[in-house]
Design a binder for these strands. Structure first.
Lengths: 348, 348
DNA sequence: GTATACTGGTAACACGCGTTACCCAACGAC
DNA sequence: GTCGTTGGGTAACGCGTGTTACCAGTATAC
């Protein structure tokens, strides 16, 4: 089709009657370059007149920098759950990147792909750094990258490796949720984790639960705790298991909204009233939390902020070799809706 | 930090004791190049031994092709609604792109950005083509791009411009939803649109509603139709308005799940039983549709397929100058859950 | 035996830009 | 007058690859 032709630096140089070098120096605002004010002006005007845009490929080749970061998005068994975070995260990443003049590559990694197949991005020099979301803990190539000094930032946390990361403060978020239930007068508060405890976030949210109990001088009772597994079904099963206890909890903290959806459905089917007979608080604040009846009280995760922080940290590492704070933790916010019974309590 | 050094083609050439040209010819599998089998083997082994990866920037500069496509994601007033599509769409795009050896750039456009600010991607030669999602109808730069012959594919449709596009078959999808309600015995079926009718998709879904009625010999009654506006609130207001009629509809087709969420909430608050007193069918199949009570019967939109098709079409245009089918329409699927009352009907 | 083709490979140019080393003129110091 | 020195600008190299034009040698046709 139409062979498009582009304006090059050389043409700008001719238009401004200077050398190509001068054009480059002016347009890149090189600090030590001594260029007369009038010449500088001529160049700028010529560039504007010709509608000049530098060629990204040439620039990358010459400078050795791509000015691009990539989001590597692992599709794990929990991907339905994590999809809820993608729009906000990506928006945050993109806006931060744009602010610093970077482009954003998106690279999903499917479940059946070999470990570390995203390395082609690095080896092919497509990007200056990676944001890894949902990495496998057995990712040895990740450690290799780290050893090479290639800029990497993790979204979410991983046991036992010291790689710059960005995450929410799971412990405090969970503690706030449980504290809220305790403040409403509940003494028997159960918990359903978001996932098996091998996942770092699960352990942290459980830890938050324990701390809140401890702060209220309530002993930790492991018979009130069940494990969720990302999806609705696991929540359904877990809450059923809790409710057949001799002394079932009067409130349950479910460390994942997706899991909570299953729990609420189970309670609904059993004819149990929420929050009347059981109060429920979730975690994540997925879109559906607003829409379900009763609307789910939950811990909001700032997805945009996570993305923004991850990108900012990564770019800092790319440009300066290391970040100021290499482990960023963002705060959460408890969103009080109906499922916890706070409304009713206020009316008392 | 550690100055990483990369293996270049020249080093492979030395290792294999051939010229750099030969290496290039072999690795790119140039058809007309006559290279002996033994030499070819030496080159391949050398490349493998040295773990050679071609430099993307150099390749782009030399070839003039970026092997990259970009998704331009407009954040319009309906962005909360459209976020539900992003994960699937992006996954589809990325997988198709990967299959053809392309990278994917993500570029959100915020509401306050000047019109056509995504042009820098094109001018800077960052990408070979664009997928535009949610473009403004007043986007004159889009037409300019089209005139230049730059590869563009639209996600969703736009009035009055003939640009390659990918979308679901809104008319048939809506018709299927309404037909389903009619088949369940309803004669007074109302509709709430997903958005004002200036949006092309809205008009199409309304058209589907009319066709289904016509096929059942039921006259179109505009008093049973209300306009939604992407969000929950608009659905809340619209259904309230319908229910105060002298003869309110016994079933309502809401052309957007997000809007339907508001409608269901309103009905719930009014103590009306769904599907007992009013049956409801939505459109889009967002995640929340599964979780709400009653679970929402709705028209599933194949987001992955839309993404895949868009990328495939775009790449075809990039490489061959034009696509086989320049307007792709994908089918939808009616997901029958609880809100339509099909379960009860079957039990009759 | 000579013209012709084919096989196997290479030298050299182009891609557009960042950057270094260098040059020239003017100017001040001594 | 000579010697720095400074301001203003340029020639030339390098980045790593794709691609074309060309060359040497050997087989084939007649």
């Amino acid at each position: 089709m139409s062979t498009r032709s582009y304006v090059t630096q050389r043409q700008v140089a001719e238009e401004a009657r200077v050398s190509r070098t001068t054009v480059s120096l002016v347009l890149n605002q090189v600090p030590d370059a001594s260029i007369g004010a009038e010449t500088r002006q001529r160049v700028l005007e010529a560039a504007r007149r010709l509608d000049y845009y530098p060629d990204a490929a040439a620039r990358r080749l010459a400078s050795g920098k791509t000015r691009t970061i990539a989001l590597v998005w692992h599709r794990a068994p929990d991907h339905t759950y994590r999809d809820a975070f993608l729009p906000g995260l990506l928006d945050g990443i993109s806006r931060a990147a744009r602010r610093y003049g970077y482009q954003v590559l998106f690279r999903p990694v499917e479940v059946d792909e070999p470990n570390g197949s995203y390395m082609e991005l690095v080896r092919g020099r497509h990007t200056d750094g990676l944001i890894l979301s949902g990495p496998r803990s057995d990712d040895d190539l990740l450690l290799a990258l780290r050893a090479e000094g290639f800029p990497v930032v993790l979204h979410g946390c991983l046991h036992g490796v010291d790689i710059p990361s960005v995450d929410v403060d799971n412990v405090r978020g969970a503690a706030a949720a449980v504290h809220h239930l305790l403040a409403l007068g509940h003494r028997r508060v159960g918990m359903i984790t978001n996932a098996p405890l091998v996942y770092a976030a699960s352990g942290q949210r459980l830890e938050g639960y324990r701390r809140a109990l401890q702060a209220a001088d309530i002993p930790y009772d492991e018979t009130l705790v069940r494990e969720g597994n990302f999806d609705e079904e696991s929540g359904y099963a877990a809450i059923m298991d809790l409710m057949v206890l001799d002394h079932p909890p009067t409130a349950v903290f479910v460390a994942s909204d997706m899991v909570a959806m299953g729990a609420l459905r189970a309670l609904h089917e059993e004819g149990m009233c929420v929050p009347g007979e059981v109060a429920v608080v979730g975690f994540d604040d997925i879109t559906a939390a607003r829409f379900i009846t009763p609307a789910l009280t939950t811990v909001h995760v700032p997805t945009f902020g996570l993305g923004w922080s991850a990108a900012e940290l990564l770019i800092e590492i790319v440009e300066q070799g290391s970040g100021e704070h290499s482990h960023v933790q963002l705060g959460t916010e408890l969103i009080v809706r109906e499922s916890c019974g706070a409304d009713a309590a206020q009316n008392d």
